[in-house]
C-alpha cells in the first residue's frame, strides 16, 4: 500500500517533469502546488480548528469555567464539551488533519529522493516504479540542475571561501515567516499556548533549516514552495497577521470569537 502511494507520487512528479521540458526544480514546485490543492480542505480545516481553539483562550465564558471548576476536573471537562458543542468546535479539528498530512509529507520526501535516484539501487528501484505511460529511456537520468543548484545534493554557495547553505537559510526564513504570519492572536499575557506558539516559531525554522542542510536540495525546494503556498492559503482565508512581521508589532485578531446562535 505504502509502496503504491510512493509509486503514484513518483510517477506524477516525473510525468510533470517530462511535460515541462525536463526541469526537475519546476516539477517539484508544480507537484507541491498540486499536493497543496488536493490537501486544501485538510489544511483549511486545520487552520480553522486551530483558530477556533485559540479564540477560546480569550473567551470570557471559557475563562470563567476554568476558574469556577478549577478543582472539579470532571465538571470542567463536561462544561468544556458543552462549549465545544454549542460553538461547533471539534477539539481535534486542528490535530487530525495535521496527522493525516504527515504520511503525505514523508511520501513526498521519499518520492523526491527516489526520483533523483542517487545510488545504483535507487536507480533500479526508480526504473521499476515507473508506469508504462512514462518514457523511461528519455527520462533517466533526471536533469537535476535547477538555478544554481544540483537538486540531488545538499546545496551551498561559496562566499568568501565559506560554503553558505543558502537554501537551508531560505527554508528557515520561510518557515519563520509562515509561523509568524499564521500565529494566532492572543491578548492574554498569561496565555501559555501563545507562548508555546512563539517558542515554536523560533525552534521550528531552526530545525527545518538543519534538516534541509543535510538533505538533497530538491527537498529544500519542496519545503520553501510548501511554506510559501501555506502563507498564500492563510492569506486567502484572511487568517494572516501581517503585523506580526513588524518589529514589536502586536498581533491583531483577524476574527473575533462568535457564538453560534
Amino acid at each position: 500500500m505504502w509502496e503504491f502511494f510512493i509509486s503514484l507520487f513518483v510517477n506524477t512528479l516525473l510525468w510533470i517533469y517530462d511535460n515541462i521540458g525536463h526541469n526537475f526544480g519546476l516539477a517539484i514546485i508544480l507537484f507541491t502546488i498540486l499536493v497543496r490543492l488536493i490537501t486544501w480542505p485538510l489544511n483549511a480545516s486545520q487552520m480553522k480548528g486551530a483558530q477556533a481553539m485559540q479564540s477560546l483562550q480569550t473567551d470570557k465564558e471559557w475563562l470563567d469555567i476554568q476558574k469556577k471548576y478549577e478543582k472539579d476536573r470532571e465538571k470542567l471537562a463536561q462544561e468544556q464539551m458543552r462549549i465545544y458543542q454549542e460553538r461547533g468546535i471539534n477539539p481535534f479539528g486542528s490535530c487530525l488533519p495535521m496527522l493525516i498530512q504527515f504520511p503525505i509529507i514523508i511520501a513526498l520526501y521519499q518520492s523526491i529522493s527516489r526520483a533523483m535516484a542517487a545510488t545504483p539501487l535507487g536507480l533500479l528501484q526508480l526504473g521499476r516504479s515507473l508506469f508504462s505511460f512514462l518514457d523511461v529511456e528519455t527520462i533517466i537520468p533526471l536533469n537535476s540542475k535547477f538555478l544554481w543548484m544540483d537538486l540531488g545534493r545538499p546545496e551551498f554557495v561559496m562566499l568568501f571561501g565559506f560554503g553558505v547553505p543558502t537554501l537551508a537559510i531560505l527554508v528557515g526564513l520561510t518557515t519563520y515567516v509562515q509561523s509568524k504570519l499564521t500565529m494566532p492572536p492572543s491578548t492574554n499575557p498569561n496565555d501559555q499556548a501563545a507562548a508555546m506558539s512563539s517558542s515554536m516559531a523560533v525552534t521550528m525554522p531552526i530545525m527545518m533549516a538543519w534538516i534541509s542542510y543535510s538533505l538533497p536540495a530538491g527537498v529544500g525546494i519542496y519545503f520553501i514552495a510548501s511554506n510559501l503556498l501555506g502563507i498564500v492559503q492563510y492569506a486567502m482565508m484572511g487568517k494572516v497577521n501581517w503585523r506580526n512581521l513588524l518589529p514589536g508589532g502586536q498581533p491583531t485578531s483577524p476574527s473575533t470569537p462568535t457564538r453560534k446562535k
Binding site: S94, C95, M98, L99, F102, I105, I106, Y109, Q110, S113, M196, M200, M204, M207, M208, W210, I211, S214, L215
Partner: peptide, 17 residues
C-alpha cells in the same frame, strides 16, 4: 502532543536521509 508529533515527524524525516 501536537508539537511532540511534529518533532517526531521531523526527526523521522531527517532519519530517512
Amino acid at each position: 502532543t501536537l508539537i511532540f508529533l511534529a518533532l517526531i515527524g521531523l526527526l523521522l524525516l531527517s532519519g530517512c536521509a
